[in-house]
Amino acid sequence: MAAVPLEVSDLRTTLFTRRGEMKAVDGLSLSVGAGETVALVGESGCGKSLSALSIMRLLPDPPARIVGGAVKLNGRDIVPLSEESMLDIRGKEIGMIFQDPMSALNPVATIEKQIAEVVMAHTGLGRFQARARAHELLEQVGIPDAARRLDAYPHQLSGGMCQRVVIAMAIACSPSVLIADEPTTALDVTVQAQVLTLLKRLQAEAGMAMIFITHDLGVVAETADRVVVMYAGRKVEEAAVDDLFEAPLHPYTAGLIGATPVPGAVRAERLADIPGMVPPLNALPPGCAFAPRCPRAMDRCRTERPALTEPRPGRRVACFAAEKGPT
């Protein structure tokens, strides 16, 4: 059997700052199969973006450093690899799409040059062939008039077009894993729909494993097969997308879903809100990080940290209350 494209186990990333060490990613495990989309969901500061950067080995060091765990890409652990070997892997075996397409592109280089550089670095194609490949990629990501756009600069393209270029660069060498970090957050609704459709199509064509990072549950529902919910650096729940929306186990997941209005559904009088706010990483409560905001918190939650349990195959949750029964 072929190795799982991406398998992360007990990944731990710590921020070393003047105000102390902060466990930004605290023991994250997840695996993504070929053709599968796993959504990484959570609010700002929950560690979802740092998890992605850790997997890509693109952490800003200092202050962030991987202090433990393994990231197996097609069966090989890439955490101990040198930066030099990572250069070879990034773009070739694992691609990444960023939130802000404008800053992900070099403003003073043409589109062709930027795509061709990636292609030439990993395939050994010549300049001429690389240009042809760039053209092909632009057409693949649905950029109209691709031949002319090759010589354009990023500022001459709209945000949606730039994101397509970034996607073209990410898939240029047919990576087996694609990480998309809030790829549609900066885009308008209709353009977001275009980009999501494009990503799904490309994924289906190439059978890529995809990690989709977002805070928008609507986008999760539209794209994901499985969902990992993070809170304060830890995974609090994991489930298939239908199960998660139908019967969330963790009170935080339930809160997030209740706080997101669903158009077309019967109008709720009030949104369910989660009181309080996300605690800062350097001042986490001793027990469960969510306990101070949790409607089901018990005494035990405030002193002891719940471990991940697996009530059903493929369904994981870290909550003492959920062990007793569903929300």
Binding site: V189, T190, Q192, A193, Q194, L196, T197, D216, L217, G218, V219, V220, A221, E222, A224, V241, D242, F245, I257, T260, P261, V262, P263, G264, A265
Partner: peptide, 18 residues
Amino acid sequence: AAPIADPKLARTRTRTVL
């Protein structure tokens, strides 16, 4: 185009992307 936070609803609706 608006994403709907309900996977079943999201799958059943017809989606014409502008």
